[in-house]
Simulated assay, not measured.
Amino acid sequence: MVVPVILLAVLSVFLSVKLWLLRRSAKEIAEALSDCLKTDTNNLITVSSRDKQVRKLVSELNDELKLLREEHHRFVQGDMELKNAVTNISHDLRTPLTAICGYLDMLKSEDKSPEAERYLEIISGRTEAMKQLTEELFRYSVIMTSEPDGEPEQVSVNDVLEESIAGYYSILSEKGLIPEIDITDHKVIRILDRSALARVFSNLINNAVKYSDGDLSVSLSADGTVVFSNRASQLTSVQVEKLFDRFYTVEAARNSTGLGLSIARTLVEQMGGTISASVEKGVLSIVLHL
């Protein structure tokens, strides 16, 4: 009777030790995996356990880590090549466009038939649109391939938002948009790049001009949350999810590269903020939190 009890006790101790070792191994693997995913190093997972199955698991995890790093490297390399290509293309387009605009200005001073005058106006309009798109593409490439130029400073978000809306007054009036503005009296002060914030607001207002069905609401709360809302019946929830994707446009957005909101998101994230979009009952809301 004593022998079975001793054997049972020994087995119990053995299993307890085995379980403790497995738990320790699991903790080591979890910590090592977390460290490998957070840091850009070539370190692999190591474990002190001599258990065959544990070491097999670690080996398989390391194989997957190597594949993941190779995919990440290819993605980063491809993304950089795309950004450089965009920079070069946009830069190369600016020179001939400038020359075209110059010759068009010279043609406008020449005697022309009414029909030639009409054609020239069409060409001028298309050229100006192309020039604007090229400039937007160039600004995007600069933002994506370089560090922010401006120095962080104390900025009144209220003032920058009011100035941005006032700067678009004529464009909004042409579109028949009378913005409903609700800006808190509390001064919202943040440490950030003033010019970058102004660019964000500019791009968001431009977005409202493109997609709005005839209204625009802008609000700033005391906690630094800015909301741009407008009716946009042509937008679906699927389209809204893609609004911040670079080069994405919907049919309603003419003369657009689809970079405005992508630039806004990049700048907001560089300033440590968040930005998101949603649509509910035909109303598009873009929420920016600083």
Rank of each mutant, 00 (worst) to 15 (best):
Y168S: 10
G150C: 08
L197D: 01
Y168Q: 06
L197E: 08
V188H: 03
G167N: 12
M144G: 11
V200H: 08
A116K: 14
Y140H: 06
R194F: 07
E180L: 04
T127P: 08
I183L: 09
G176Y: 12
I189H: 06
S195I: 07
G176I: 14
D149F: 04
Q132C: 10
I122W: 01
E147Y: 05
R118S: 14
F201M: 11
S146V: 09
F201A: 04
L172Y: 10
I143E: 11
E147P: 08
L161A: 02
V155T: 03
S173D: 05
S164D: 02
S156Y: 10
G125E: 03
K175M: 14
R118F: 12
F201P: 01
I181E: 07
A196N: 12
D159Y: 10
G150P: 08
R139C: 00
F201H: 07
S164R: 04
L172N: 06
G176W: 08
P179G: 06
E115G: 07
E115R: 12
Y140K: 00
E121A: 15
E136Q: 06
S141N: 04
S113R: 09
E135R: 06
S164Q: 04
I178W: 00
S113H: 05
T134F: 02
D149H: 01
A196S: 15
S170L: 13
N158R: 05
V157E: 05
S146R: 07
E136P: 00
L172H: 06
G125Q: 10
V160E: 06
M130R: 07
E135Q: 09
T134E: 05
D193C: 13
V200C: 03
Q154G: 13
L177I: 14
I123D: 03
N203Y: 02
R194K: 15
T134I: 12
Q132G: 04
D149P: 00
E135K: 09
E136K: 02
S146P: 09
I189D: 11
T184E: 14
S146L: 08
F138W: 03
L177N: 04
A116R: 14
G125V: 07
S164A: 13
V188C: 10
K112E: 01
D182G: 03
E136M: 02
E151D: 04
Y169T: 15
P152H: 12
L120M: 14
G125Y: 00
S113I: 11
T127K: 06
R190C: 09
K131D: 02
D182F: 01
E128N: 07
